[in-house]
Each structure stands twice: as C-alpha cells, then as structure tokens.
Simulated scan of single mutants.
Amino acid sequence: MKIRLSIAVACLGAGAIACPAFALDFPARKPGLWEIQTGEGTGKSPAGAHTMQQCIDAASDKAMRDMGQGMGKDMCSRQELRADGARLVMDSVCKIGNTTATSHAVLSGDFGSAYRMESQSTYNPPLMGRAEGTSVMEAKWIGPCKADQKPGDMVMSNGMKMNMLEMMSNRPKK
C-alpha cells in the first residue's frame, strides 16, 4: 500500500528508524550509504519492492529520527518499543486521516551493516480499501557516500534525488 509504504519509508527508512519517542532508544546507523528496500509481503526479499539509497552521517541520522519523533507525537496515541533478545519490537496506534492504524513491527540486525523490519497493520476503517497489510523493509550499508552526495541525500527507485535535511528545514514550523 503506497501510503503505508510512504510512512514506513519516511518513518523508518529515511528516518533511520525515525519514530516517536520511546523509552528505549533505537541504535544509530553506521554513517555512509545505505540501500533500503521496501515492499509488501513476508518473504526473504520484499515482494514488489522499491529500492532507494540514502547517504547519512551521525547528525543527519539523528535529525531524521528527531523528525520522526515529532510526527509520531502528532499522529500516534500509543507507541511502545521493547527489546526482545536481539530484536526490537514496536507496537503503535496512529491516525492516518480518519483511519486508525494499529501496527506491530519487529526489527532485527546490527544497524552497522544491515537491519530488517517486518510489520503487520490493521486499518479501521479500511485505508484505501484495505483493512490490513504487511510490509518488509531491508536495509544494508553499501559503503561510503558517493562523491556527489551529502548527508541527507536520498535517491528514490525512480531516480529522483532529494535531501531530507533540506526538506525538513523548509517545512512550516508549528
């Protein structure tokens, strides 16, 4: 589902696991170039995947996590994050327009070379005709950022390039 994938990308992929404030902190990702693949399904690789690349440093990674925390405060009535062995488990209840999205996500990996998130959500009332859905996000560190990239740069699967830090600095303040 495009809306859910966009939220997942904005909140988790682009935001380096950027989600609302939790008692437990997400690990910071290794600086450099990350390839992030998102899609629906639960196979080893996401079905119908979309791939993007993101250049980060410690400051841009933190800024995008902070942005996600701000978004979550406005949209979510429940946010829980807990460690389950080496995995992180997130449960949330968020409003997307008139729809309440109840989600359960499991994150695994080391955040230095790779991580994976599998999520399941229900929508009440249905969102764009769907009452439930699943998604998978896989991210891997592929090396230093390219010479023409700066922290915050994202290259979407269609080749469109944007800088998340610049977009964040241009958004209206509350």
Rank of each mutant, 00 (worst) to 15 (best):
A47F: 02
T51D: 00
G129W: 03
S135Y: 09
D66K: 10
G41K: 10
A86P: 07
Q37T: 15
A23V: 02
G97Y: 05
I142K: 10
G70A: 14
M64H: 04
P27H: 06
N98R: 12
K140F: 00
F26L: 11
C145N: 04
E40P: 09
Q69E: 12
A16Q: 10
E35Q: 15
N98I: 08
G143N: 02
P27K: 12
H104R: 12
K44Y: 06
G112K: 15
R82Q: 13
G70F: 03
L12M: 14
P20T: 07
G97K: 09
P27Y: 05
L24W: 01
L127G: 08
Y115D: 08
M137S: 06
G41E: 06
P46C: 07
D84R: 13
A83Q: 15
P31T: 05
R65H: 11
W34Q: 02
A83L: 10
M90S: 09
T122K: 11
D25G: 08
H50Q: 11
A147N: 13
D57T: 05
C76G: 12
Q79N: 13
K95P: 00
G39H: 07
T102F: 03
P20V: 05
T102G: 05
R65T: 08
S113T: 15
I36M: 11
L88A: 03
S108N: 08
A105W: 00
G41N: 08
G109F: 03
A105F: 01
